[in-house]
Structure formats: C-alpha cells, structure tokens
C-alpha cells in the first residue's frame, strides 16, 4: 500500500474536481466519484485530489481510511457485501460467511486468487426481513442458507467463465 507509483488516468477525475474542488466540504463526494471511476482509490489519485483541493495528502488519506465505503485496493469482479446486521446475525449470517469462505477461500476484506470475488462484511443492508442477506454487485440475495450461498457463487463463477 505504501506505493505511490500507480499510473492512473487522472483526466478521468478532472471533471469531478472541476465541479467540486472549490466547494468546501466536498472531499467525501469527490472520493465517492473517484471510487466510482477507478473502482478504488489509487494513491496517485489521492495525491492529485489533495493537491487540487488544497489539503494535505495525510488529511485526504485520513478521510479515505475512516469510511468503510472507501477502498485503497482494487476489488474483484464481484463484490460480495455480506450483511452483518442484527437480524442477519440472529438468522445465521456467520454460517453464510463460513460457507463463502469455504467456497472461495477468502476471508472478510480479501479477494480470491482468480480476482473474481471480494468479500466484504458490511453494516446492515436494511433487508432484515430477508435475512440473512448478501448483495453482489448491487443485486440482493435473501433468505440465504449456506448451500444456497455456495450455489449463487458457483453460478457467478460459471457466468464469469462464459464471458
């Protein structure tokens, strides 16, 4: 992580900065756009943002590492957001996490070797009546069982192979 030699295309973030750089208090919004553009927050982008908004890189880094939404590393093709809400917990989300772990060999925050999946435990997704729930690339999967979760992952693997 302590590397600053990624070569991101900074022109992509320029329009965002043109819009927000002079509006105070926009750092989080800028970072959100940056992450949407790059998939994560590359170091050189962070430095560029800091420069454009006139803050120190340490400050930008402080914000980027405070919020769980932001990532400093690229994620897999499929981002599995596993809900850790109370309802999901009560209804067995730990077993789902174990199943995902077993199926993909990754723990929370890790990306599978094939670069397909990243597992991220997230705060309540708010679909408590469907608990336990996970969200993969915006799609919600509810009333999971360990077997059902594995099945979903296998389908996605197949899908990725076909592509």
């Amino acid at each position: 992580m302590d590397c600053c030699c990624n070569n991101s295309d900074l022109s992509l973030i320029m329009p965002v900065l043109d819009k927000y750089a002079d509006t105070k208090g926009s750092l989080i919004t800028i970072l959100q756009h940056a992450q949407e553009i790059y998939g994560y927050l590359p170091t050189d982008v962070i430095y560029y943002i800091a420069d454009r908004i006139g803050e120190s890189p340490a400050k930008v880094m402080g914000v980027a590492t405070f919020y769980s939404q932001f990532r400093l590393k690229p994620v897999g093709k499929y981002l599995i957001m596993l809900c850790q809400g109370t309802a999901c917990h009560v209804n067995g989300s730990q077993k789902i996490e174990q199943a995902i772990s077993d199926e993909l060999g990754i723990a929370d925050g890790e990306t599978s070797d094939d670069g397909l999946f990243t597992l991220k435990n997230v705060a309540c997704l708010g679909c408590c009546s469907l608990s336990p729930v996970m969200m993969i690339n915006g799609e919600t999967y509810g009333r999971l069982t360990p077997d059902k979760a594995k099945e979903i992952l296998r389908t996605l693997k197949e899908k990725a192979k076909e592509e």
């Binding site: 400050k59 405070f66 769980s68």
Partner: peptide, 10 residues
Amino acid sequence: GKGILGLVGR
C-alpha cells in the same frame, strides 16, 4: 499549518 501527519484508519 502543514498538516503533514494525519490519522489513518478508524
């Protein structure tokens, strides 16, 4: 007025 150091993480 330098802001060289910062908090990282939560």
